[in-house]
Each structure stands twice: as structure tokens, then as C-alpha cells.
Design a protein around this nucleic acid. Structure first.
Length: 463
RNA sequence: UCCUCGAUAGCUCAACGGUAGAGCAUCCGGCUGUUAACCGGAGGGUUGCUGGUUCGAAUCCAGCUCGAGGAGCCA
């Protein structure tokens, strides 16, 4: 007999009622009496469990009644309406095959677990309600990212994971090498001789696909990357990981306004997609993870994102009357507490902060006419903080060379990046969206370690 | 990396200088529609590690390891 999924049963119950069906899945809990019992079965296709009713008409009734949570079974029987109040349907089992019993030390209870404990059993936590919901939404959002950009004519570019130098300057990087650590080649001055390494030079894991994707932007007009990114920073926070996924669109013949509009449209599209395609999961998050989640997300869909310049933001903070641990002053980067005030208290919705002082932003950001600020934008959202960081890119070769000189960057390291300004280097802009931070925002999950299947953080790569 | 807090049964926690306990899970038994099922019983511990103080340490002190929250860095 063909296997039916629990998703089909719940979405199209009328097609299956009063018919014989076959399902498979994993036992969430068994409640048994002397002559009958109930199994909560989850087959991974649907958030809600299917209730299986069984009785001593089964030749393996005793074995089934003793099944430990986590066991894998295959059930055949009649799909019927349920007399119980808590579920509309149930499966009256006529045959239950134990496909894989769980040992009695199965660590997951039917009780609530702490997320800290579940991180220690990352291989089993996808079987819990919360992680089932998180990772289905993660999958849906990954697809939605592609859908959003593809429908708007963007070309998906795979930028390299291994990058040619540390010239990007965006923080600590993981080195990639094939050198024998027991016998590292040295040059005349005692330094490691990377010319004898696999690539004949120093290589690292990418910290951003941006520089590479700009080359494709200036050929395809509208492009995006979506892939893994690596940062070797010793960050111990709920919103940093050493390996995470980033989405980096880049649009040509466009500046900061178009860039912000794209980011806002994208955020609304992705939120709407999750609400529409994972209603059970989103309701679960709203009930058990963050009771204000749905109100907040619908509010985002209905309202325009706020936009302020950095200079205006500083004025708002100075006039706020709030006691901040760090002083607010033009020229200093906004602290987390300042960002939280802006997005969570003052605007109470997502807010773009634009036009930061050039000193606190990257060399490639486009200089504004005032000569003091650059056309950068950060999108701040309540609860997560910075979720998008982007800018208009400096397309004027002379401006960029001057800026690189000021910062002491070696122009030879960036020869091909500068070439892009030499040969039809039109205005262009782009941003990076932290995919995990998006998932946190959409699900209400508070820790990035709980939206990555097997998270990599300092001192943690067990799985 | 810095600051703060924490680590006791498989899990969630209690005991806070004087014999280490409960609920859940597991095992055994009972129960004819359960819903974190219910009722009865049993097993389960080098109290994170190392050292110190003390007649006596889960409890006080120091170091270490790991974790959490906050900060920095950023997405």
C-alpha cells in the first residue's frame, strides 16, 4: 500500500476519511491501557501529530504498548473522525510494524526541555516541536529568498567559499591550507612560505561574497548570492556564529534609495511567505516562543519602515532623555543599546539608519557630497538588532583610490576590484542579510544556535 | 576577549556547613477513549574537575573546564 503523509491527511482529510491508509513516522508518546492505547505519531511532514488508536486485536499489542518515545513505526488502518476533543482525525490501527525501536535511554521527554540541553543533542532535537517548526520555516524561507529574487530578474551567483587573501579586511578569517603542520615551509626571513601551499598563496574562508558579486552585478545588472560565510571572531553572543548564511543582493545603476526599497520589499515578502506557508508553525511560535510575534510581523507588513540618517538618529538619542551606558555623540558608532532604543522604543518597527560617518564604515562605501559621511544603511529590527547592512558602492575610481590611501590599503591587492571602476563602473549598491537573523526575527527564537542545524560557535563543533 | 551569573539523578529543579530529595523519564504492576493520560511500586548520584579551609563541604575559598546573559565585533 502507498504511504500517505500526515500533511496530506490534515490538508485533504476528505480524500482519506473512512479509507484504509498507511503512514510511517516516529512515536512522540504512547498512552496505553490494558486493552487499548494511543500513539502520537509525527512523520516529519506536518507540525501536528497524528493520533493512532490501537487495541489488543494487534498480534504485537504488548510490544506496541511498550514502545519508547522516539521509535520508528509503520501503521496501516482506517482513517476516521476522532471522538476526542483535541484532534479532528485519528487512525485506527490494524497493523503496526516496529521499524526501529528506540532504546529506553532516549533522551527526549514529552516534557519541555531547555534549549541549552537540546544543543547537547543536536542530532535529536529536530524531533522536537520547536525545532521541527524552526527548520521547516528555515527551509521555506530559503526557498522564498530565491523566489523573491528570481521573480524580479536577479541572477543567482555562486561566489567562492575559498578566497584569495585577507584583503577584504572584514574581521578574523579561517585559514585554508594544505600545508603539513608538522613541517611548515619557511622562507628566508623565517615566515611561513605560502608560495608552497596548495594555491601558492594565503587563502581563507570567505567572510563576504560582496566584492566578487560586484563583478557579476556589473555584467548582469541585478544579482544576488546566498551561501555560507565564515568568521573566526571570538564572539560569544546569541546572534553570532562562526558559520552562517548570508544573502547579498547587488543592483547596478542604483543608489541607496533603491537599495533600501529592495530590502524593505524583501523583508515583507519573506515574512508574508512564512505566514502564508507555515501557519501551524507560526502559531506555535506565537503561543510558546514569543506571544507578541504575530502582532509584530503583521504590523511590519502593514507599515512602512522608518528611515533616518545617522545624524538624525544621534539627535533623537540625545533628546530622548534615556540614560545610556555609552554616551551618544556624532562620530561614534551606535551602540547596541542605542540601536535597541531606536527600533524598539522610538520607532517600534524596522528602521533604516543611513549616511554614517566615513570613519566607522568600510572603504568601498560611496562618499556623500558633504565629504564626511558615506551612503551606508543598516536595517535595525526589534529583538534582533542589525539584520541588514549595506551601502551604495564607491564607483568613482579617484574617490576610491584616495580612500584606500587614507586607510593604508594596498591597491595591488584590489587590482581587479579597482578594474571594475575603470571599465564601465556604473553606480551600484547592495546589502548583506544575515539569513539566521532573519529566521530569528520571523520565528521569535532568541538564540542563533537554535536556528542552525549544527551550529559552529567558539569551542563548539561537536556534531 | 571583557563583565555578571551558573553547573546536584537521563531531564527540570530542591536541599545552601551536619545521613542528597521531588516531579518527569526508565523498569514492574493496575486501569475500556487518552490528550505533558491517570494510580501503585522499584531502580537510578564520585553534587563539572583539581586543590584548599573545616571535626565535618553539594553548601565556604582559589584555579580550571563548560554553559547562559550582557558588552565589543558584526550579519
Amino acid at each position: 500500500m502507498e504511504v500517505t503523509t500526515v500533511r496530506e491527511l490534515f490538508r485533504h482529510a476528505d480524500r482519506f476519511l473512512q479509507r484504509k491508509i498507511k503512514v510511517n513516522g516516529w512515536v512522540r508518546t504512547v498512552r496505553s491501557s490494558k486493552n487499548f492505547g494511543f500513539i502520537e505519531l509525527n512523520d516529519g511532514t506536518f507540525f501536528t501529530n497524528l493520533q493512532v488508536v490501537f487495541d489488543d486485536g494487534l498480534d504485537n499489542f504488548k510490544e506496541v504498548a511498550k514502545l519508547v518515545t522516539g521509535s520508528a513505526i509503520v501503521v496501516e488502518g482506517q482513517f476516521t473522525e476522532s471522538p476526542g476533543a483535541k484532534q479532528p482525525f485519528e487512525l485506527k490501527a490494524e497493523r503496526i510494524e516496529v521499524a526501529g525501536a528506540a532504546a529506553q535511554d532516549y533522551p527526549l521527554q514529552k516534557k519541555r526541555h531547555s534549549f541549552e540541553f537540546l544543543r547537547t543533542i543536536a542530532h535529536l532535537r529536530p524531533r522536537t516541536n520547536t525545532f521541527s517548526a524552526v527548520f521547516r520555516v528555515r527551509s521555506l524561507l530559503a526557498f522564498a529568498v530565491h523566489k523573491f529574487f528570481q521573480e524580479r530578474g536577479f541572477v543567482y551567483v555562486h561566489t567562492p567559499i575559498i578566497t584569495g587573501s585577507d584583503a577584504e579586511g572584514a574581521g578574523e578569517m579561517f585559514r585554508v591550507t594544505a600545508l603539513d603542520f608538522e613541517n611548515i615551509p619557511r622562507d628566508g626571513s623565517g615566515c611561513v612560505d605560502f608560495s608552497r601551499d596548495f594555491f601558492g598563496r594565503e587563502t581563507n574562508l570567505t567572510v563576504s561574497g560582496q566584492l566578487n558579486v560586484e563583478a557579476y552585478c556589473l555584467a548582469f545588472n541585478k544579482v544576488y548570492t546566498f551561501g555560507p560565510t565564515f568568521r573566526a571572531e571570538n564572539s560569544n553572543t546569541a546572534r553570532h556564529a562562526a558559520e552562517f548564511w548570508m544573502i547579498e543582493p547587488e543592483i547596478a545603476f542604483a543608489g541607496l534609495p533603491e537599495n533600501m526599497q529592495l530590502a524593505e520589499d524583501m523583508m515583507k515578502f519573506l515574512i508574508g511567505y512564512a505566514l502564508e506557508n507555515a501557519p501551524e508553525e507560526m502559531n506555535f511560535f506565537n503561543k510558546f516562543i514569543d506571544k507578541s510575534l504575530l502582532d509584530r510581523l503583521y504590523n511590519v507588513l502593514d507599515s512602512d519602515f522608518a528611515r533616518v540618517t545617522y545624524t538624525e538618529a544621534v539627535e533623537i538619542l540625545q533628546k530622548s532623555g534615556e540614560e545610556f551606558n555609552y554616551p551618544v555623540g556624532w562620530g561614534h558608532d551606535l551602540q547596541t543599546e542605542h540601536e535597541r532604543y531606536l527600533t524598539e522604543k522610538y520607532f517600534q518597527k524596522p528602521v533604516f539608519v543611513t549616511d554614517y560617518p566615513k570613519e566607522i564604515k568600510a572603504f568601498y562605501m560611496r562618499m556623500n557630497d558633504d565629504g564626511k559621511t558615506v551612503a551606508a544603511m543598516d536595517l535595525l529590527v526589534p529583538g534582533v538588532g542589525e539584520i541588514v547592512g549595506g551601502s551604495a558602492r564607491e564607483e568613482r575610481l579617484d574617490y576610491m583610490e584616495k580612500r584606500m590611501e587614507e586607510l593604508g590599503l594596498n591597491k595591488e591587492d584590489y587590482w581587479w576590484y579597482l578594474d571594475l571602476r575603470r571599465y564601465g563602473g556604473a553606480k551600484h549598491a547592495g546589502y548583506g542579510l544575515g539569513f539566521e537573523r532573519l529566521i530569528m526575527y520571523v520565528t521569535g527564537m532568541a538564540n542563533i544556535r537554535d536556528v542552525i542545524s549544527f551550529p559552529r560557535t567558539p569551542k563548539n563543533a561537536e556534531f
